[in-house]
Design a protein around this nucleic acid. Structure first.
Lengths: 193, 193
DNA sequence: GATGAAGTGAACAAAATGTTCAAATTTTCA
DNA sequence: TGAAAATTTGAACATTTTGTTCACTTCATC
């Protein structure tokens, strides 16, 4: 197993354990145990406990992002692509228990103000994905010629709000309905008639 | 609120928190927080953390015992009493989440060998309840004239084994069926024909 | 079997936690 | 009301836990 794979495993295990006990109550040794190694060895891969946490979360977020990327890359119709991107992104956390739990214990992972964003690079990439779909829609003459940058920010903020409402505050079913409805309205708002 | 009530509340809260985090990961301060007091104050009520744990568990066990006691005290028919005692005792943990969780994290609470029993006094009282039902059955001429002391120990051991199988190892539904069946067979074994 | 990479476990410093207690606060009751 | 008793606090202290480092061992590769 090369270093890359090893890192992946370490962050997977770390995320599981952080989800189980919360940041403060997990010891570096708990994670080492989960991996069947000693804690000293972990320090060949990360700087300190905080670093381990942040990289574990980052890997979780990237995994999420990659999944959405894969699910839209082969879609021809840009409207379909927009809807799928929204639905897949939104639904993802219902399946990733560890990441969801960590997010619940540490909502600062998803900052409402992008100034205090610990994962700004990742979030920027997510926004890029959204932006590129919007741009494509415009270029193909399907979407109205809106200000892409501002709209991207707006839609991303709405999306984050839904994630928080649904998974952190767990306002369940009705929020899901609202999301579907919102997606539909926004797509119609985008479309040229 | 008098000292008695206060102690009850403290042990209730402690059991909840110990269930949530496990013994090692709960801080005395977590329990104080749950009670809205400072940790220093807790030491007016218990000797140390271990003492707090043991008394919290003990209170949980006594609550269980009391519930069973109440549920059989007004039953006239001794067979009915025997069955009810078994069923209520066995089913109790499915409702007491805290006690169940603590038991799962610390199975030594229910010792298979009574020599290493931290709660021997409580278990002895439970066995007394069982013994008194058996004795009554014999005195009324309903049960065969068995050796009550040995039978009490035997039945209690079987009962503890079922508790462990069901709630610690969570071997669910099929174990429940087995318990019902076992109860039926034992009662028939006891009855004079 | 020499070389570098990976891993260990003991040592240490720093942080967290358990425990005590003098002082502050609240309650009790004459 | 106001003094005495009971309760609670919060800071201080001792102990334990935990994060982090590193000299050394083990393992893998050539």
């Amino acid at each position: 197993m090369n270093r890359e794979e090893k890192l992946t495993r370490i962050f997977e295990a770390a995320l599981r354990v952080f989800a189980r006990y919360g940041y403060r109550r997990t010891r570096v040794e708990d994670i080492a145990d989960e991996l069947g190694m000693t804690k000293g060895n972990l320090y060949l891969y990360v700087k300190d406990k905080r670093d381990l946490y942040e990289k574990a979360v980052a890997q979780g977020l990237l995994r999420w992002q990659a999944m959405v990327g894969r699910s839209i890359e082969k879609i021809d119709d840009v409207c379909d692509q927009f809807l799928t991107m929204g639905r897949k992104s939104y639904a993802y956390l219902s399946r990733d228990v560890s990441l969801r739990t960590v997010l619940i214990n540490d909502p600062s992972i998803f900052p409402l103000s992008s100034r205090e964003d610990q994962f700004s690079e990742i979030n920027r990439a997510s926004m890029d994905m959204l932006r590129s779909v919007l741009t494509r829609g415009i270029q193909e003459g399907r979407f109205r010629e809106v200000d892409v940058d501002h709209l991207t920010e707006l839609l991303y903020s709405i999306y984050v709000m839904f994630i928080i409402k649904t998974y952190v505050k767990s306002e369940g079913k009705s929020t899901q309905k609202m999301f579907e409805q919102g997606l539909d309205i926004i797509l119609h708002g985008l479309l040229k008639r």
